[in-house]
Design a protein around this nucleic acid. Sequence first.
RNA 1: UCCCCGAUGGUGUAAUGGUAACACACCGGUUUUUGGUGCCGUUUUUCCAGGUUCGAGUCCUGGUCGGGGAACCA
Length: 554
Amino acid sequence: MESEDSTRSLNFIEQKIEADIAAGKHSGQVHTRFPPEPNGYLHIGHAKAICVSFGLAQKYGGKTNLRFDDTNPEKESVEYVNAIREDIAWLGFEWNGGEFYTSDYFQQLFDFACKLIGKGLAYVDDQSAEQIASQKGAPGTPGTNSPFRERTPEENLRLFEEMKAGQCQEGERVLRAKIDMGHDNMLLRDPVIYRVKFVEHHRTGNDWVIYPMYDFAHGQSDSIERISHSLCSLEFENHRPLYNWFIRALDIYPSEQTEFARLNLNYTIMSKRKLLRLVEEGVVDGWDDPRMPTISGLRRRGYTPESIRLFADRIGVAKRNNTIDVSLLEWSLRDDLNRRAPRVMAVLNPIRLVVLNYPEGQTEMLITVNNPEDEAAGTREIPFGRVLWIEADDFRVDVNKKWFRLAPGRMVRLKSAYIVEYVDHIEDEHGNVTEVHVNYIPNSRSGQDTSGVKPKGTLHWVAADQAEEAEVRLYDRLFREASPEADGDFMDALNPNSLKILKGCKVEPSLSTAEVGTIFQFTRLGYFNLDSKYSTPGSPVFNRAVTLKDGWKG
RNA sequence: UCCCCGAUGGUGUAAUGGUAACACACCGGUUUUUGGUGCCGUUUUUCCAGGUUCGAGUCCUGGUCGGGGAACCA
């Protein structure tokens, strides 16, 4: 897919990989990993990271591991593990290197820590978190050594064993790497690498009461799995020296970390904590609300895996911070769906259209193509009769020359059917048009039109007698501000009109057998799919994934 | 205040010392039984100052601006 143009330029990671392969580094193999913490749902930002790590391994004939980075049992759960697995698989990636858990390595990591202690490179500190923090110093100001820094390896080993055995309270003691309290990089000022937590872990239960910190787990896990290219986001740049320090001190497989810029999208928030707030405060209908940037939300909305991969491909990979326009995401979906979504007709805001010169009680079946972009999609039959539903927006009384739709004195084509000409219309007491009367031109039938009439506008429609009722949900962006987090509370930037529910919509009869997962183009309206949560047999609910691009400026 | 990273149209990404290009967005034209799609085109770009070089977006020096960095989170 992405290799169809082999002359395409490489991003900086591809360049590094190709240089590594050429130099025979890591035996010329590419082995990546995707390491989520199972403490929340994956979002479109993760999708980029997934496409990068899995995609690069794929491109270079390598493998990718899925590794759950589960070193903090307080926040993690099996529910998240399962959701993450489902989302990655749905995106179309296979963790062909295997599925792993950092918690699988708890014993090995413990042994690594003992090795460090033995080399005099780690010590048990009895101070409180506050004391340790105050000794850190500040950027530009060196820290001060802990009074426990010079304990002997024997004493440290004994105390560390005690920590492991549950003989220390939480916060009583920690294990720290012994590096340099004056280092320019704050992370190297004797970082805490093990802490006591009497918390049940979703996989190891109560086997452990000490848990390794991220920095003491991640690089070593990469190394254990013989990951060649460990790709992560820019925020970990400052961790790389530590990552390398542990690998060198332990003398283990030299995995290498490379950082790239994470995805930012305008009109969107990406922070797990803030997304959680939307869910908890009921602003949205769960993690998979179709307005959420989560993968499950995008899926329910009608996004396809292909469109998300295409998007990831288009935004590229680099080291500078970026904010991508959501319109690129939307374009990716349209581009994918335009090629393969079956076209159907649906009327969202129906008014009656009566064809006065069409025989009462008569119905005829008309042939229409399923997808003009794809001949192989074939054709289907749709019923036509004297009374139809058309869109209220498609009729107006006062119009100018840029109006192509129906109006007094105007003719329009009914899609795949006949050309009709305005006769008169009925308004209710508020002046709203409720019914339009037309005559049809019998020899203007689609495909066998000998009328010679060329109306500018084509309307979608549904035969009233055969129409099915449906609910349709129209979504708009969740935030009205391009940068919802820029100033003040992001909750203030919420778009109050992000969801509009339409009831009593009329859809063509073929939609009665629609299934979740098939995404349709409602002609002239956009792409829609059956909502996986609220649809029931007999009362379908459709989500609008994205509108069609609207070139009409009238 | 110290360390790390970055800076190319409106937004992203390329150009690997040799004509600044591609996509999205925007605007216009054209095709069209979807005001969709397709096709064609317009507009808009190398942070600043020096230096090296026949030649600098690219290399060097200095600056400016932006991002990240001190959790017993990942």
